[in-house]
Amino acid sequence: MSAEGTAESRLAHVRDAISRVERVASRPAGSVTLIAVSKTHPAEAVRPLIEAGQRVFGENRVQEAQAKWPALREACPDIRLHLVGQLQSNKAEDAVALFDAIHGVDRASLIAALAKAMDKAGRRPDCFLQVNIGEEEQKGGCAIADVPALLAQARAADLPVVGLMCVPPAEVEAAPYFALLDKLARDHELPGRSMGMSGDYETAVMLGATHVRVGTALFGTRDAI
């Protein structure tokens, strides 16, 4: 969709689309969480969405979130913040302190760092295991075959794993990859599926997404950084 119009109208458009697909897919209304991905956009661009009622936001980088979100959350304490990008193990403590959910858990070393940080902080953000669903060398995520072992490691470390996350290959039909992630989540009795972005979130909702990560359709094209 075009990102023209007011923040309120863009948000309404995306919400309406999600609601429509929920109905078509015979899913309960409100079963999908819209994560407004505000990476690279300043606080001034975020506030209109907050004023329009959006409460769940996503960031890719810990440092950017640390600079942007404390003041926004002070003004609106019920905001929930998701880390949707890659996380370095040395940033685990900062991530646990700031985020309510972490979507990029994809290796044993990060599980260990997060478990240590959660024990120290006394808070346990929800975690999604990221799966390299298209087996792409340049992308993060664990191999499909490694999901059982990684999940076992995360559970043994007392990480609150609530679901799986993926980013399908670009420029190809996303549906088969979403269907595969949905099957993997079912096979491992995980309720959450973090999948779908601005160009394919409706397909993701049709195929079982519980969390969609939408940026451009809400904020417009990001500046390259």
Rank of each mutant, 00 (worst) to 15 (best):
S2Q: 13
A3Q: 10
A3E: 04
A3Y: 11
E4L: 08
T6Y: 04
E8R: 14
S19W: 07
V21Q: 14
R23C: 12
R23I: 15
A25E: 08
R27L: 12
A29Q: 15
V32W: 06
L34M: 13
I35N: 06
I35G: 07
I35L: 11
V37E: 07
S38H: 09
A45E: 15
V46K: 10
V46I: 12
P48L: 10
L49H: 04
L49W: 00
E51A: 14
A52V: 03
A52E: 03
V56Y: 10
V56R: 06
F57N: 04
E59Q: 06
N60R: 08
R61I: 00
Q63L: 12
W69Y: 14
R73G: 05
C76L: 03
P77W: 12
I79K: 04
I79N: 10
R80N: 11
G85H: 13
Q86R: 06
Q86E: 09
L87Q: 11
Q88S: 06
K91E: 00
E93I: 03
F99V: 05
D100M: 01
A101W: 11
H103K: 00
G104N: 03
G104E: 11
V105A: 07
R107N: 04
A108E: 15
I111S: 08
L114S: 08
A115Y: 09
D119W: 07
R123D: 01
P125F: 02
P125T: 09
F128W: 15
L129G: 04
Q130F: 05
Q130L: 02
Q130E: 08
Q130G: 04
Q130D: 02
V131F: 02
N132G: 11
N132E: 11
N132R: 10
G134R: 05
G134L: 05
E136Y: 02
E136F: 03
E137F: 15
Q138P: 01
Q138D: 02
G140D: 02
C142M: 13
I144R: 15
A145H: 12
V147I: 00
L150T: 10
L151R: 14
A157M: 10
L159C: 01
P160S: 08
V162F: 08
G163Y: 00
L164K: 00
M165C: 07
C166Q: 01
V167Q: 09
V167K: 04
P168W: 02
P169F: 08
P169V: 09
A170E: 11
E171R: 14
E171D: 14
V172L: 10
A174L: 14
A174M: 13
F178D: 00
A179E: 15
D182V: 06
K183P: 04
L184M: 07
L190M: 07
G192A: 09
R193Q: 10
M197A: 14
E202G: 03
E202R: 11
T203L: 11
A204M: 01
M206D: 12
M206E: 15
M206N: 12
L207F: 09
G208T: 12
T210Y: 08
V214D: 01
G215S: 00
G215A: 08
L218Q: 03
D223K: 05
A224N: 07
